[in-house]
Simulated assay, not measured.
Amino acid sequence: MYISIIIPTYNRLLILQKCLLALENQKITSNKIEEYEIILVDDGSTDNTLEWLAENKQQFPHLKIFQQNHQGPAAARNLGIDNAKGDTIIFIDSDLVVTENFLQAHINALVTGKKSLKSDRLFTYGWVINTCNFENPTNEPYKITDFSAAYFATGNVAIAKKWLLEAGKFDTQFQLYGWEDLELGVRLKKLNLKLIKCPEAVGYHWHPNFNLEQIPQLIEKEIQRGKMGVIFYQKHPTWNVRMMIQMTILHRLLWGILSFGGALNEETMQPLLKWLINRGQSQLALEIARIFLNWYNVKSVYAAYQELP
């Protein structure tokens, strides 16, 4: 197999360096992998990503760089697919640091799955472990909160290129944050592709410790996710999608009640969140902040839906 690893990136230079170095240090233990390339699509970064890569290109012999104006990850991944030489595509995010057997694990699972199913209608999904440890992200243990029930998510997935082309690639209507990969997953499911879990292919998803300065950006993400959720629902108007995007009366009641109709928000909860953060409980503070973050999301999805013609 010839593998093309496609990575969209936007202003993530520091963790991107670790991401790319980990991919260059892969341990290939069988002849099932003929070759691999790393296709990085810069989505209009302004943090000197391209300049740093040009200065350090000797460290990344497998790397191929493509650029686009800021259009979002859907368009970036499509650009990567269009330029990929590989018959097998692996998608990861640019804040993911993988282990040395990452590629081999995905390929082993694809080969084994094909034999077991007697079909090549499959893709593999690896583990994504969340961590705040920038110095040694791969030291983080797997936690129950790292479990994902998603059918197709681009944080750590391997799939034959032909299925992406047959499904129609990513929908570039999704220019803001959220849902472009799960929407493609709905179309892949209609092609009867089976998800094969591959826990040996581990990626460590780094994000900084939660602090109060992140709140405006997190709120904006939830607002964007609500808007993109409506596009998702327009394409696939099912109850399952409504549940996914939180456009149900259940979600409206749940987050409305928990936030006291928005009375518990980023301002009123700031003292509690600050107190928890100062005591080293930033993760707990983030989970509590999700009360008002989800309320922003629910309000956004309903507002966007009501604006439809």
Rank of each mutant, 00 (worst) to 15 (best):
M1Y: 09
Y2Q: 14
S4L: 06
I6G: 06
L14F: 09
L16S: 03
L23S: 05
E24H: 07
K27H: 13
S30R: 03
N31Q: 12
K32F: 10
E35W: 04
Y36N: 04
D43L: 03
W52K: 01
W52F: 15
L53N: 05
E55H: 10
H62I: 02
F66Q: 04
G72H: 08
A74T: 05
L79A: 02
V98K: 07
L103V: 10
L103H: 06
A105C: 11
A105P: 05
N108V: 01
G113Y: 10
L117Q: 13
S119D: 13
F134W: 05
N136F: 12
T138E: 11
N139T: 08
Y142V: 13
K143W: 03
A149G: 08
F152C: 10
G155K: 00
A158G: 07
K161T: 13
K161E: 11
G168K: 03
K169H: 01
W179S: 06
R187F: 09
R187A: 13
L191S: 02
A201Y: 14
W206F: 15
H207Q: 14
N209G: 11
L218G: 01
K221V: 06
R225I: 00
Q246N: 11
R252V: 00
L254N: 10
G256E: 07
S259H: 09
G261P: 07
E266W: 10
L286A: 05
Y302G: 02
Q306F: 12
L308V: 05
P309T: 08
P309E: 13
